[in-house]
Amino acid sequence: MRVRVDSSKCQGHNRCYALAPELFDVDDLGNASELNDGVVPAGLEDKARLAAANCPEFAIIIEE
């Protein structure tokens, strides 16, 4: 599984970083980005889905 943040949609709500800091980071301006090229380590798939399901801007894309 991979995750990707669509930076044209991200507005810095920081939900992904709060819910899955193993998968996402945020910069000083609140913009989120995926860690580890977006590769989701085994066992963290649910966290990835949770992050996507809580993004108000629909900015997180999951590729399975």
Binding site: G12, N14, Y17, A18, V26, D27, D28, L29, G30
Partner: peptide
């Protein structure tokens, strides 16, 4: 203003 309110 954003940096002052960043999560970190």
């Amino acid at each position: 203003l954003l940096p002052a309110f960043a999560p970190k």
